[in-house]
């Protein structure tokens, strides 16, 4: 459960998120829609304190995850970031092997004998295993953009986060991989609380339990996918068809 209470995020004097108050139930998918520059990425980054290094960034109000205020001074930010995984808008793999990338976040936490099983598990979860199982030792930079995006998702899942923040994870994917990721996200819902930023209304309405629209740093009135099913476009139907035959 994630709670925002009068949450403000600002760069210097410019408030990007203003007085945000809302709750996200656990084990649900929430889509966030908003114009470019409306503060979607800022909101996600605030949730895992990624802006701590940014000079004039400041917050007001509270963000609580499972009742704990994440901006309290005694918060263990490293544990927080392991619990709240962020998948970036642009995939950033390390110039290392695919295998090393998949276990990058957990190397110190487990014995090396456990690596191969974990790698297979997370790569299967993101539907990448079949494509790369014979080339795990190759540099991850040789993968296509879409494959890299799925690899970064696998890398995040390997750490075992409870909350998953995804910043337009399908913007560089083809319809098939997009559908695969959407299906994957739905399967992750039982174990994770998911925030999904997207520009596509159709996608938001077809996968999310709740759709939030950000405007001027605030949330426009809630819309739920059930509220406007008749508006689903032909593109959604294409996607839905694809979803039935993902492999």
């Amino acid at each position: 459960m994630i709670q925002f209470k009068n949450f403000v995020a600002a760069f210097g004097g410019r408030k990007v998120i203003r007085a945000l108050t809302f709750n996200l139930p656990a084990n649900s998918i929430t889509a966030i829609i908003g114009a470019s520059g409306s503060g979607k990425t800022t909101l996600l980054r605030a949730l895992c304190r990624m802006n701590d290094r940014v000079k004039n960034f400041r917050v007001e109000g509270n963000v609580l995850i499972d009742g704990m205020d994440i901006y309290r001074p005694d918060t263990d930010v490293y544990a927080l970031r392991r619990n709240v995984g962020l998948v970036f808008q642009k995939p950033c793999v390390f110039p290392k092997s695919i295998f090393d990338n998949a276990v990058f976040g957990v190397k110190e936490k487990m014995h090396r004998k456990e690596y191969p099983d974990l790698v297979e598990k997370v790569l299967r979860e993101v539907f990448l295993w079949e494509e790369v199982k014979d080339r795990l030792g190759e540099k991850a930079t040789t993968l296509s953009q879409g494959q890299q995006q799925r690899l970064t998702l696998a890398r995040t899942l390997a750490v075992g986060p409870q909350v998953l923040l995804m910043d337009e994870p399908t913007s560089s994917l083809d319809p098939k991989s997009t559908a695969a990721i959407e299906k994957l996200v739905q399967s992750l819902k039982s174990r994770h609380t998911i925030l999904w930023v997207t520009h596509q209304h159709d996608q938001a309405h077809s996968i999310a339990d709740k759709v939030l629209i950000i405007e001027n740093g605030q949330i426009a009135p809630f819309e739920t996918p059930v509220a406007r099913p008749e508006q689903s476009s032909s593109f959604t139907r294409v996607l839905q068809n694809v979803q039935e035959y993902p492999e």
Partner: peptide, 16 residues
């Protein structure tokens, strides 16, 4: 900066 951020997002401690 993206490498640093990717590491941060995985919850790596500073020494790591």
């Amino acid at each position: 900066e993206k490498y640093r951020e990717a590491g941060m997002a995985l919850g790596l401690s500073r020494p790591t």
